[in-house]
Nucleic acid binder design. Structure first.
Lengths: 148, 148
DNA sequence: GTATTTTGTTGTCAAATGATAAGTAAAAGA
DNA sequence: TCTTTTACTTATCATTTGACAACAAAATAC
């Protein structure tokens, strides 16, 4: 029983380190006129495109009206494009524009450089250990489905 | 070389899972009239008390004027207390009040329940694996000092 | 002893975000 | 066909958060 409590406190400390690291890795990322929430939306689109407004709303936990508003701002800025779905005319498939794609490519490249700087001196064996550690935690602790 | 790139993408996915999990674990946490930023400050005080305003400002990446304002709101709400430092009269040592301590105890208890629900079926061997995985990642990837 | 730095405060402003009401149009269900 | 549900929009408002200027008091440096 106490082993679980200890693991909980280890997790609290772990989460703090993760947040701090992500702050350091992204603080110099040039956002231009893109706000943090808008960046989060772009990141989600980049990974999951094409997406619908409802999917953004669900996954990023932003209400539909606010999602609509922020997405309008992003399209006005030329970062993404909406296309009516053929099968369902209510839906819109959203993708990054080429400008948005360049923006996100640069963002990921920046993060990757920061990341490589961190793991720079690790050899193949260590990298494989880290990968296994991430997979383990992702499936046993940070799985989105909830319980194991 | 490509192994590192693969690990980077694994980390991106990992971070997404961590965020999603923390969202689920904290979304039902009763914040009352405490805003998210204020909660973050309380969490930091709880773990590191006593702390100074400058430390909160540095660690939570909030400007001094804004830290001062939010902390004033928290003391007005009776969540924390300021005490002048004996050695340096400019400094203030900040601690949770008993109300604030109760609030944070409840918050941590809530998170711990959520956490235990997630790892519920894991045995001692698995728990030890998870602990080692967190320690490994915390020291080799998410270390606050930067490089290895 | 004076200048500078550190620590914190107060006030004000603007931007970002969250919440809600009301509406449109298409799809699905009855 | 009529009703209901889904997907999204528009408009509006309040709150939260971030940024900046100006200030005060204590400590430190010179």
């Amino acid at each position: 029983m106490d082993q679980k409590k200890a693991l909980f406190y280890e997790m609290v400390s772990f989460i703090t380190s993760v947040h701090q690291t992500m702050y350091v890795m992204t603080k110099e990322l040039p956002l231009g006129d893109v706000t943090p929430v808008q960046y989060g939306i772009l990141e989600y689109i980049a990974v999951s495109q094409p997406v619908t407004l409802s999917e953004i709303s669900d996954c990023k936990h932003i209400s539909m009206p606010n999602t609509s508003r922020e997405l309008k701002k992003l399209t006005d800025k030329g970062m993404c494009e909406k296309a009516e779905a053929e099968d369902d005319k209510r839906k819109q498939y959203i993708r990054l524009s080429s400008k948005g794609q360049q923006f996100m490519d640069a963002a990921f490249a920046h993060m990757e450089r920061e990341f490589l700087g961190r793991i720079g001196s690790a050899d193949g064996e260590e990298l494989e250990q880290m990968r296994r550690a991430m997979v383990l935690l992702r499936t046993k602790v940070f799985d989105t489905d909830g319980a194991i």
